[in-house]
Design a protein around this nucleic acid. Structure first.
Length: 322
DNA sequence: TAGATACCTTATAG
DNA sequence: ACTATAAGGTATC
């Protein structure tokens, strides 16, 4: 298989390069199928970028474009590069290692979408959102990058959150060369912690700069790690994450849902809060925690799925005019 | 413990 | 052109 330029195969002698693995995943084997572009551009993750630079360039549906991401190995900090694209019912992947299990996890390919939908109430709004965006999956991205992404996300537009992550990557991330092509890994906690606040502000982070810096320092120095929340019951896990600076209940819910696999988490952002007020007023309570409980009870055990569908459905103006 | 306000920076609306 | 407003909220008082 040849996916074209990006991660070339072959191994020139005497140059640092990587072995390239590749393979395909039959989308028909995934329960509920897959829409790769929706999954990667629905505000769940800002860690993937399009080879053609058209990331967040518009809402055109999946055009078969290729996406890149890096993964940093827990054992030795080695960086792998992966490339995916969806064409003709196949999800094609390439990587500097056998990244298929990583891709399957990160893209939520194991989720049984029909079963999740069956466990979700079929009111008019949720049905419309599921119909419009079917195939969108909830990701499980690495914990530290997800934590920083959503610290950066406050009061910020989706396309700019992505640009911030690209800036962090380019300024601070390890440079990886794969047969002449260069890629920046997402920076490690240590790499972020070594930066200055001024440096981060220069990247356009604004008032988030000191939050990002302090949160990275906490992880780098071993005070706490976002992945440690995974072992706790849901609400304890959310409380645990709020110890990081710049992390309140909403950002904590994003980390739980989009990294740690807590599918019951419902981030209550402005869109979802507005949705609660408008469509589920009986779930509207006087605190985040109380509204969260009520809407989770309404949406069912996989409440994060309808949350994510409704968020993207409304944010992108797909909602039928009232 | 609840409520109000400041906060970086940019894109978009008026 | 120029100002006001809002963008996946949180920390602080």
């Amino acid at each position: 298989m040849n996916l074209g330029p990006g991660i070339p195969t072959g191994k020139p002698a005497g140059r640092p390069t990587r072995t390239v693995d590749s393979g395909t995943i039959d989308v028909d084997d995934l329960a509920g199928g897959l829409d790769l572009r929706l999954t990667l551009e629905s505000g769940q993750t800002y860690l993937w970028w399009r080879e053609d630079g058209e990331t967040y360039a518009g809402d055109r549906g999946d055009d078969g474009g290729a996406w890149y991401a890096t993964t940093t190995r827990a054992v030795d900090g080695d960086v792998d590069v992966c490339r995916v694209r969806q064409q003709e019912g196949l999800l094609e992947w390439e990587g500097t290692a056998d990244v298929e299990p990583i891709i399957r996890r990160r893209l939520g390919l194991g989720d049984d979408l029909p079963a999740i939908r069956a466990a979700t109430p079929n009111d008019e709004l949720l049905e419309a959102a599921f119909d419009a965006l079917w195939g969108m999956r909830i990701v499980r991205e690495p914990a530290f990058p997800t934590l920083l992404m959503f610290v950066c996300s406050t009061q910020m537009r989706v396309a700019r959150i992505f640009e911030m992550q690209q800036s962090l990557r380019r300024a601070l991330g390890t440079l990886v060369t794969v047969d002449g092509q260069t890629y920046h890994a997402y920076p490690t906690p240590e790499q972020v912690a070594a930066a200055s606040e001024a440096e981060l502000r220069a990247l356009g982070l604004g008032y988030r700069a000191p939050y990002v810096l302090e949160t990275a320092r906490m992880v780098a120095e071993g005070e706490a790690h976002p992945a440690d929340a995974a072992d706790r019951p849901y609400e304890d896990a959310r409380d645990y994450l709020t110890q990081f600076v710049g992390v309140g209940e909403k950002v904590a819910d994003c980390v739980l849902l989009f990294s740690l696999g807590f599918l019951e988490a419902v981030p209550l952002d402005t869109w979802i809060q507005g949705t609660v007020t408008e469509y589920y007023p009986d779930c509207d309570r006087d605190s985040y925690a109380a509204t969260s409980r009520a809407i989770r009870e309404r949406f069912g055990p996989y409440a994060g799925y309808p949350q994510t569908y409704v968020f993207h459905y409304r944010r992108t103006g797909r909602e039928a005019p009232a």
